[in-house]
Amino acid sequence: MVAAIADDHPVRGSTLTLREVSHRFDLEGQPLPVLDRISLQVGRGEFVALLGPSGCGKSTLLRLVAGLDTPAVGSLLMDGREIEAPDPSRVVVFQDPTLYPWRTVWRNVALGLEARGLLRTHSGRIEDALRLVGLTGFANAYPRQLSGGMAQRAALARALVNDPKLLILDEPLGQLDSLTRITMQGELVSLWQRAGFTALLVTHDVEEALFLAGRVVVLSQRPAHIKAEIANTRPYPRRRGDPHLAELRHEVLAHLGLDATW
């Protein structure tokens, strides 16, 4: 099904380069530094997780990657080209599904195609995307009729229908109950494997980062800088009980200064 979406785009995934990116907010006239010289290289089709304490500036970093904001210092490049504005090849899935309540699920998923004037020619993709996330029967439902997990799936379909080269995931499972989260983590991995996009995940859940990502980037407290990069070469599909993952978890917690309770 992803193949149907993927056929007209033989090259899958993009590279992402962050060069010495710093950013600050203006808080009542006082500059508040949030990002401190972050450099990162993400390869084609890689799954990278950014892990850090709450409020450390992870989401700000994602907004910069998405092109929604421009960094104060430094540059971000996608496939070697500078990121200056939002582009449908980089799609964000936010923590809150924020579906448009006045649109049905189908019309929500259609949003990107409609915005780019592709709805008439590519509307078949919407069915594909809905099937991919298991919402085929809910095309005509309104967001208020969906559960939290279903809404987040619809938000995922809304992103995937655009066939992104880079999928930016801003704590997409953060508001789901733990059982739904476990299911959706597995689904995310299989979506990523089938579609082959590059994925950048922000999370504060160590287990989630290690279960999903090939590389975990640990960020410090605000202003965030990179504390450590931990490669995770365990093959997919991963098992939650894997002792190697437990070791990595210990290592990550140590970097975050939270290993006292291990």
């Binding site: 907004r63 998405a66 092109g67 929604l68 939002p86 582009d87 449908p88 980089r90 799609v91 964000v92 936010f94 809150d96 924020t98 448009y100 949003l111 990107g112 915005a115 780019r116 809304r158 655009n162």
Partner: peptide, 14 residues
């Protein structure tokens, strides 16, 4: 909700 705009912008909205 400003996220509505963010979503549409990342999806290529004019």
């Amino acid at each position: 909700n400003s996220t509505y705009y963010d979503i549409a912008r990342t999806l290529g909205a004019t």
